[in-house]
Structure formats: C-alpha cells, structure tokens
C-alpha cells in the first residue's frame, strides 16, 4: 500500500521550471531518501507534500488524502521535521512536551524524555538557548513521542556535527525498523543516507533521474576508469553516465557490466585500454549520476 503518491507534479518558480510531470510513490514501511543538488527542488517537494505549496499542476496524496486538504486525523499521523530543526524556541524542554502532548492521542511522553536524558539540558532550559545538535534531539524526541505512521524530514542533517548526525541516523533507523514507520527524507549529506534509506530518488533539474532501491544502486552502479587512443563520445548511448576525461585517463559510470561498457566505449572506434571497475559509495554514485557540476 502506498503512503505517499505524487502524480504528474509540474511546478515553476516564476519562469524557472522546477519539475515537469514528476510522479512517484512511497510504500508503507519504506525509508525513502530524496537526493539532489542544490536547487533541484527537494524542499519544494516537501512543501508540496505537506500542503504548504500549491503546484501548478498535479496532485500528491498522503494516506489517500490530497495534500491541500489533509484532515486533522491524517495530520496527526504525519511527523514533520522542518529544515534546520525549526521548533517553537520560546518554549522550554518541559513546556514544548506539554504543548504537543494534548494534540496527539498516542503521545508517548517517555519516548521524549528517554531521548533527552542523553542531553545535558535541564527541564526548564529554553530551546532558544540550545545548540543545533541539542535542538535536533528535542525535535526527534517530539517526533518519537508523537508516534506518527509517516515521518517527513527536511534536510535533517543541516547544521549537525558528525556525532549528532550519527546519533540522529541511528535512533531514526532503529525507530523506523522497530515500528514499521514510513520515512520520507532529504539530506545534503549523502553518507548519512547510505546508512538509513531503503529507496532512493535522485532529482535532476526538472525531473527524476533515478528511483531505485539503495541496495540496487550500491550493488550495480560502478565507476569505470580507462585510457583511450581517441576521444570517447560523452553520450554513452543511454548506458554510460557522465563520461569525462581527467588528465590523461577517462572515467565513466554505468549500471552495465564491464564487457557491456567496453563494447559501448569502443563503438566510436577508439581503442580502450586498462578498463577497470570500482564499487561506489552512495555519495560517489550520486556524483556519478548527477555529475560534478
């Protein structure tokens, strides 16, 4: 069953196209990461999904309800983390828990305080006086206490040092797996996503470049380095991605096998030597798919 469905989303900011006919679904219990370079519209998708932006055309549904008319019941099942761990910073640790607890019938007070035990904060400490890392834990604690079926996290790693990032990812992974939660998240730090996400959508300017399981990308997408006697076509016939010359050698990326890549490279008549393949991290795969620039 799909928790999130987006159909044919087209959106422009002024005359700049952000997406055209963007469609995807997120199944129940999946952790889906939305990756893309700056300006490809990751936050825009989150805004559309949560009903804070009306696209020019197309529709998104969460739990079968259209994003612009989410019922209070549907909203209570969606945990939302805004970019930068934004919260109501005029509250203190205790007040913010008391505030949210009355809105959610399944509120788990202990989950919030359990997570906060790890922080060196007092119950009366104002959130505005906390570091970004501490605020991220408060935000995560509130999400766990809300116990939503779907978590939407916009750039959860923003402003966090490596320790807090790892802490956030570990807690989130454990929580999502134990409770069969669906998670839709974006982050500009792709190393963190590798530890967390089941499925991956890679956005390019205006479209989805790839929507595949993370394990499939890590298993099949490779970097190939080689030397060539003549220039190689950068087009790659749909098999090769971002073929470019670096110094005297070349590199390209592909889901194809070594032999298939060699055949593709030799089509223009160039002699291909020292062709070697390398396994990739998700970050390298992302660069291979989207290019460095």
């Amino acid at each position: 069953m799909s928790v999130i469905q987006c159909e044919n989303i087209t959106h422009y900011y002024g005359s700049k196209l952000i997406y055209e006919q963007l469609s995807f679904e997120v199944g129940e219990g999946k952790i889906l990461g939305l990756l893309g370079k700056n300006g490809t519209g990751k936050t825009t998708i989150i805004n559309i999904l949560t009903g804070y932006l009306r696209p020019q055309s197309g529709v998104c549904r969460i739990f079968g309800e259209e994003m612009e008319r989410l019922s209070p019941a549907a909203k209570s099942r969606i945990g939302l983390l805004l970019e930068g761990h934004i919260q109501h910073t005029y509250f203190n640790v205790e007040q913010i828990e008391r505030f949210y607890s009355r809105f959610f019938p399944r509120w788990k007070r202990d989950a919030y305080y359990e997570l906060l035990k790890k922080l060196n904060v007092t119950p009366t400490q104002k959130i505005s006086t906390m570091s970004c890392g501490q605020r991220s834990q408060v935000a995560l604690g509130l999400l766990f206490a809300q116990d939503p079926a779907l978590l939407i996290l916009d750039d959860f790693s923003m402003g966090l040092d490596p320790g807090y990032r790892r802490l956030f990812v570990e807690y989130l992974r454990e929580y999502a797996a134990a409770e069969n939660k669906t998670v839709f998240l974006t982050s500009h730090i792709i190393q963190d996503m590798e530890l967390l996400i089941d499925d991956c959508i890679i956005l390019d300017y205006g479209r989805i470049l790839l929507h595949e399981p993370t394990a499939y990308i890590l298993k099949n997408f490779r970097r190939f380095r080689f030397t060539a006697t003549a220039d190689v076509s950068a087009a790659g016939g749909g098999v090769l991605w971002n073929t470019e010359k670096i110094g005297h050698s070349w590199e390209t990326y592909s889901f194809a096998t070594l032999d298939e890549v060699r055949r593709e490279l030799s089509k223009d008549g160039a002699s291909i030597d020292a062709l070697a393949e390398e396994r990739l991290s998700l970050e390298d795969a992302f660069i291979g798919l989207t290019g460095k620039y």
């Binding site: 949560t50 804070y52 209070p72 019941a73 909203k75 209570s76 969606i78 939302l80 805004l82 930068g84 934004i86 919260q87 109501h88 910073t89 005029y90 809105f103 959610f104």
Partner: peptide, 18 residues
C-alpha cells in the same frame, strides 16, 4: 513574529486541527 520567523507557522498549521 515568532510564528513567521523561519516559517514556524508551518508547525502550527500542521497541528491536527482545522
């Protein structure tokens, strides 16, 4: 003003109420 700062109003409007 605190609601509009960093678009916190999104959090308020996301509360399960009309």
């Amino acid at each position: 003003a605190p609601e509009m700062q960093s678009k916190r109003l999104k959090l308020t409007l996301h509360l399960p109420m009309n």
